[in-house]
Design a protein around this nucleic acid. Structure first.
Lengths: 177, 177
DNA sequence: ATTAGCATACATACCAGTCTGTATGTTAGA
DNA sequence: TCTAACATACAGACTGGTATGTATGCTAAT
């Protein structure tokens, strides 16, 4: 064993940036988990598949996350939340014509099928997990509320500029989804 | 063991009408599977839960269906298909005002939350299984096509009667979902 | 008596999660 | 400054539980 340890010594220089990069490892886990959860749903998402996709092992996963549930929560809070913000909330800030802006986003989503259900991933997960897990429901609702608030805000802005009629829009935006 | 077997003899009389009714058994399995699949999705649907809900055992299930996949296919082809026909296709046959008829169906669905996602079960299953399983995709598409054809037909009828404008409606009806 | 219809016990595989070990980074003391 | 001691980050075997699917036996019905 001592001999094995000595023989197992790798060249220690460089690759130090590849190895021992916890933030990168954690991010890879989150991305891999997000993809797998999107493909199979949370319950059917296999930990081993996520690990293979991320290129790490169980030790790494359970060092960064307490359990599968915590991993799922982190995916919602960090990956999905960031995606929604990036594709919906941010483009809607300081825009004049909200109707055309919304149409533009939808059209852009339709072109890239990857992003299509990246937005729908919120809805898919909600359909699957909201009735079963309060933690998921809370987090998904938070994201959904943020999205609704963003669209409502831009619609209000459109009312000021006169390009949107004066009706109830906040709840209407929710009803659309 | 022989003694135990003899001791395990139950009173054999009556319930003969309950026992040995293969069609009823098969139907109970389909209904229970449909409920469980709606609740948890197909992949996460537990066979044991379905069996408990149906009140039968594995032997009965695997006598009537080859495996879980075949059970799922049968649910799509028989239960879901019949539901869609019952709530959508049939009410649309020989109707004069298609717009009001469609609105009426949707309103009726909104009242009964059980039927709401009985219709959406088609969509949910498609979301989950279409990318993963060609068999599911084919069967679900068949049902969807039938529904689309029915709505398109009634819209065409409405065009003749003058209550619907002359635009492209067949593809429009598909786009709505 | 034979078989269709079903129950029960079991085989097998997979899954999340744990445990132990180990290599690497960091810090404190001599 | 060198190193011992510790903390961090990760690997991989292992375990208990649960899942689907199977093998076999019993029984009602024809």
């Amino acid at each position: 064993m001592l001999i094995g340890m000595l023989a197992a010594r790798k060249n220690p220089k460089r690759r130090a940036t590849r190895l021992r990069d916890p933030e990168r490892t954690r991010e890879r886990l989150l991305q891999a988990a997000s993809r797998e959860i999107y493909r199979s749903g949370f319950q059917s998402a296999s930990i081993d598949t996520i690990l293979a996709s991320a290129g790490v092992t169980k030790g790494a996963l359970y060092y960064h996350f307490e359990n599968k549930e915590a991993l799922g929560y982190a995916v919602v809070e960090e990956v999905i939340s960031a995606d929604v913000r990036g594709t919906w909330v941010r483009p809607l800030r300081s825009v004049k014509d909200p109707i055309n802006a919304l149409i533009g986003i939808v059209q852009r989503l339709s072109v890239r099928p990857e992003d299509v259900c990246g937005g729908c991933q919120l809805n898919n997960l909600a359909q699957e997990m909201s009735p079963l897990d309060a933690g998921f429901r809370k987090r998904l609702e938070t994201i959904f509320d943020a999205w609704r608030e963003a669209t409502a805000s831009v619609l209000r802005q459109g009312q000021i500029h006169g390009s949107v009629r004066r009706d109830v829009e906040t709840t209407d935006a929710a009803g659309l989804l």
